[in-house]
Structures are given as structure tokens and as C-alpha cells.
Design a binder for these strands. Structure first.
Length: 299
DNA sequence: ACGCCCGCCTGTAAGC
DNA sequence: TGCTTACAGGCGGGCG
């Protein structure tokens, strides 16, 4: 559920909070959260004593570069949360799986009830390893390529639409080179990284396009409208600190909810009047996923 | 080789 | 009222 805007909100808050801090101790309650490592100890050993240099983001992933040249990577899955605790005495909330303690004081908790989140430390590949990675897509911009090299585990991730600027011609190329339904196009992390079920519906409403329109069928005007809607919706959502849905799973570092849900035009508004045309907002199952749209405004 | 869909999980809420 | 069942979601991997 945390999609790009929610992860970006966490990134900017975290950046203020932990850059320059040194990791003193890490506790992991269960190997599941660090499943890419041989053991929880292997994960801990790569972190303890390290100083945090920055907090970055690509798509729904948080990247935390360390002194060692390695990068701590966090993914929140669908119910993952990060919490800031002032002292180790703060009572742990349920489903706290990883605790990062800092030399300067304070803790960062990784909390995740539905367990789809994970953490791992990425170690840069040597020359041979990089050569073995196939970085064939010539259209992918320079920034995306640098990331793919630095975090080899994420080499299949597409470009980040907030961090990277794309011309609408490049965007049009992605849309046209393979015909897929627009919602699948937006949610496919291999092309554009960071958009999930909520924002794909909101972007498509803003663009006036149906979820099942084929990407290859878009006119030049529609390509521009979709790209513009994508950039604008994500920017608006970041401005309002993301969306917390009905279950309020998404919380920021201090436990506060996001404010963007009140601006949703279609997501979770089935049966209500479209704010633009007053027709009823529809809800359908699409590839086992809830999809909301306005039959009248989206073509 | 590629695309679709299941399974991983738990909290919440609808339904009998 | 209380128990059961369905559902929400991202993503990796398995199957067709």
C-alpha cells in the first residue's frame, strides 16, 4: 500500500532524522524480514558501526547508503511502517520486527503486520558481476542505469517518475512498443517504478483514460495527458504527505496518517458521485484487483 | 520464453 | 452474538 508518495514522505522525514547517525545495534526478530541474507547475523554485521550518509528512494524502495559503500534497502510491502522512537524504553508496538539503534540515541523500528516487507544490505558488484548484469535497454535514462549498477538486486526496476525527467516522446515509446492495458502499464515496476493500485486509478482518472485502454492505442495528445497526469498526481500526493486508506495502515515516522485520501477522485469511492460529472463511480475486479473509474469521464 | 496468477500473511469486517 | 469466511495488497516464483 505504501506507494511512491508515501515512501517519498518517509524518505524526506527520515533524511532529516537519521543522516549522519551511526548504527549501534540492530535486532531482527525473525529471518523472514532479511530473507536475502544467510542469517540475521549476516545482516547485522553489515550494519553495526556504519554511519548513514543519505536517504534516497527509487520507486517504492528506500535506499540508505552507508560509509562502507554498501546500501541498506527497505521495502514496506503493503503494510510496512517505519517508526521513530526516542529511547529504547519506548514500549514496542505489535509486529515490530527490526530495531535499528543509534549511537547518538533514538531508534528506528520496522513494523509490518502482513509481512510482505523486507530489508537487505546491498553490496556493490565487482566489474565481472556488473558485466554479467544485462543492462540492455537503451531507452532507460542515465540515472536509472546508475541505480541499476549500484543496487544490483534492483536492476530490473524501471525509472522513477519523480526523480527522473522523461520527455513525453520517451514516455510514448514505452507506451507504444508493447500493447498492454493502461493499468498494467502503470503498475508494472519494470517500466515505471512506484505506482500501485491506488495511484494508477487516480492517474487514469486525471488523464481521462480507462484502465483497460491499450497503451498502443493512445493518440499523441493522450500520451501527453497521461504523462502530465502521472507527474501531477504524484506531486500532489507528496505535497499532502501520501494517502492513508480506510484501514489506516500507512503512517508516517511519527504515526500520523497522510492527507491525500480526501482528494481521491475514484479510489474507494464506488457508488458515490463523480465530482466532475456526477455519474456514479464504478468498481470492477481487474486481474484480481479492485479498480475504480468513472465510465463517463474516462474513455 | 513470456504472461498470468497463486501464495505469502494478519487485521478487519461482512455474513450466516 | 459469535464464529467463519472473504478481502486487502506487492511481488516473486511457478506453471501453463
Amino acid at each position: 500500500m505504501p506507494e511512491l508518495p508515501e515512501v517519498e514522505t518517509l524518505r524526506s522525514d527520515l533524511s532529516r532524522e537519521i543522516v549522519g547517525k551511526k548504527i549501534k545495534a540492530v535486532t531482527v526478530d525473525n529471518g523472514r524480514w532479511v530473507r536475502r541474507h544467510k542469517s540475521a547475523k549476516a545482516f547485522r554485521d553489515l550494519l553495526e558501526g556504519q554511519t548513514i550518509k543519505a536517504v534516497e528512494r527509487v520507486g517504492k524502495y528506500l535506499l540508505i547508503p552507508l560509509d562502507s559503500g554498501n546500501t541498506l534497502v527497505l521495502h514496506l510491502g503493503m503494510s510496512g511502517q517505519l517508526h521513530r522512537a526516542k529511547t529504547p524504553k519506548t514500549p514496542k508496538i505489535k509486529h515490530t520486527h527490526i530495531v535499528f539503534g543509534f549511537t547518538q540515541g533514538g531508534e528506528l523500528w520496522f513494523v509490518d503486520p502482513r509481512t510482505f516487507g523486507e530489508a537487505f544490505v546491498s553490496v556493490p558488484l565487482n566489474e565481472a558481476g556488473q558485466a554479467a548484469l544485462q543492462l540492455s535497454d537503451s531507452v532507460v535514462n542515465a540515472e536509472a542505469r546508475v541505480l541499476r549498477r549500484r543496487i544490483s538486486e534492483l536492476h530490473e526496476l524501471g525509472f522513477d517518475p519523480v526523480e527522473s525527467m522523461l520527455t513525453w516522446e520517451q514516455f510514448g515509446y514505452f507506451l507504444h512498443h508493447k500493447p498492454v492495458q493502461l493499468k498494467a502499464f502503470l503498475m508494472d515496476q519494470h517500466t515505471i517504478a512506484g505506482i500501485g493500485n491506488v495511484y494508477s486509478d487516480e492517474i487514469l482518472f486525471a488523464a481521462g483514460l480507462r484502465y483497460d485502454r491499450l497503451s498502443s492505442s493512445l493518440s499523441t495528445t493522450e500520451v501527453r495527458r497521461l504523462y502530465r497526469a502521472l507527474v501531477e498526481i504524484l506531486a500532489e500526493a507528496i505535497k499532502h504527505r501520501g494517502s492513508s486508506l480506510a484501514d489506516e495502515q500507512y503512517r508516517d515516522l511519527e504515526g500520523r496518517t497522510g492527507n491525500f485520501s480526501q482528494f481521491h477522485e475514484v479510489y474507494d469511492r464506488a457508488g458515490l458521485a463523480c465530482r466532475r460529472c456526477r455519474n456514479t463511480v464504478q468498481k470492477v475486479k481487474w486481474k484480481d484487483r479492485n479498480t475504480y473509474f468513472c465510465d463517463h469521464c474516462q474513455i
